Amino acid sequence: MTTYLYDVARYLPEKRVPASYFAQFADNDKLAGNVMFAAPEFRHHAADDETSADMMVSAARVLTARHGEDYLDDVSVVLTHSQLPEVPVHGCGGELAHRLGLRPTTVLDVHNGGCAAVAHMLDLAGALLRGAGGGRALLALAQNSASQIFTQEQVRGSAQAPIPGDGAAVAIIGLDDVSASPILNVVCHSFGQFAGDMVAVAKPSRKYWEAGPGQLHIGFTEARIAKVLARGNRMVPEVAMEVADSVGIAPTEIDWLITNQPNRIFLRNWREALELPPQRHPDTFDECGNLFAVAIPLTLDTAVDDGRIVPGDTVMMSAFAHAGDFAGAAMIRWGGRR
């Protein structure tokens, strides 16, 4: 039973932050100059009181403005992914469903997909809908750590601080509209042996739930960066090639490649590995920075809006997560907004 993507929508916070904001705080971080941390020109920061659910609701309202207030009425599955869940233990799926007036049978907060969460969520939602024999799923993703983690006084001068941005995106999938965009295949792989290579640190050291003077951030080292670069360079093209092969399309024949967007070096290496020119690899990095899981649906929505992606085009979405503990890809044939 084929799963279809009906539409996607995006939201960016109003606050647009230039690279100069971080430049004024730059300290003697020994990782400055590393290719992983070449800063984008801009990124957006969520407002102080703006939550993951707030941003997801804003993105979902784009869909209802576009298609009508009843567009979400048939949603039976709600999947959410927040980069930084505000509430300990559980995520914001229940709040999102309530605020949108939904009565789903399944609400699931998907935390471990990382930057490849879209592939993970497409896979999960498709299985849930097929198991139920119908319905629609709302996939909602928010990246909310840029303004909360990377502007902290002890973190904002580091090389990693200017890279992330905040934003949200949503997508609707289902089984019943053959005029929508068929999901040709989804492939996901877990690499648990690498799960311990992405860590949160503070100085002095503490567990993240313990009180203390040190502000949490990502624990990058030269050795960890080398591992992440090697794995990411390999994983994203490999999983994209696996999906392309499964549907009988050569990678060079893909109309559009959309990936997660951690930095420019990955973007270049991935499209070169798949032998695709830059103009067929849309990115929003210089406007939005690293949006983590939000990057793929937001960039897809952007490229549809500006007319690059048109009905009939094949779109490969491929990503890896964290330090390489997860990778996923999905291919669609764009059918227009439905």
Rank of each mutant, 00 (worst) to 15 (best):
residue 187 V to I: 11
residue 187 V to E: 09
residue 189 H to P: 00
residue 192 G to P: 03
residue 192 G to M: 03
residue 193 Q to A: 11
residue 194 F to Y: 15
residue 194 F to A: 15
residue 196 G to H: 06
residue 197 D to K: 05
residue 197 D to L: 05
residue 199 V to Y: 03
residue 200 A to D: 00
residue 204 P to Q: 01
residue 204 P to N: 02
residue 205 S to T: 07
residue 206 R to K: 05
residue 210 E to Y: 02
residue 211 A to M: 01
residue 212 G to A: 02
residue 214 G to Y: 00
residue 217 H to W: 08
residue 218 I to A: 08
residue 218 I to V: 15
residue 223 A to S: 10
residue 224 R to K: 06
residue 224 R to W: 03
residue 226 A to L: 12
residue 227 K to N: 10
residue 233 N to Q: 10
residue 238 E to I: 07
residue 239 V to S: 00
residue 239 V to R: 00
residue 239 V to M: 04
residue 242 E to Q: 11
residue 244 A to R: 07
residue 244 A to M: 11
residue 244 A to F: 06
residue 246 S to A: 12
residue 247 V to E: 07
residue 249 I to E: 15
residue 250 A to P: 09
residue 250 A to Q: 15
residue 251 P to S: 13
residue 252 T to K: 14
residue 253 E to M: 14
residue 254 I to K: 11
residue 255 D to W: 07
residue 256 W to M: 15
residue 256 W to Q: 15
residue 256 W to H: 15
residue 258 I to V: 15
residue 261 Q to H: 07
residue 263 N to E: 07
residue 264 R to L: 12
residue 272 E to H: 13
residue 272 E to K: 13
residue 274 L to R: 10
residue 275 E to A: 12
residue 275 E to M: 04
residue 276 L to W: 10
residue 281 H to W: 05
residue 283 D to P: 00
residue 283 D to Q: 04
residue 286 D to K: 01
residue 287 E to C: 02
residue 289 G to I: 00
residue 290 N to Q: 08
residue 291 L to M: 11
residue 291 L to T: 04
residue 291 L to C: 04
residue 291 L to D: 03
residue 292 F to I: 07
residue 294 V to K: 03
residue 297 P to R: 06
residue 298 L to S: 11
residue 300 L to A: 04
residue 301 D to F: 02
residue 301 D to E: 13
residue 302 T to S: 08
residue 303 A to M: 07
residue 313 D to P: 02
residue 313 D to Y: 05
residue 314 T to M: 09
residue 317 M to C: 11
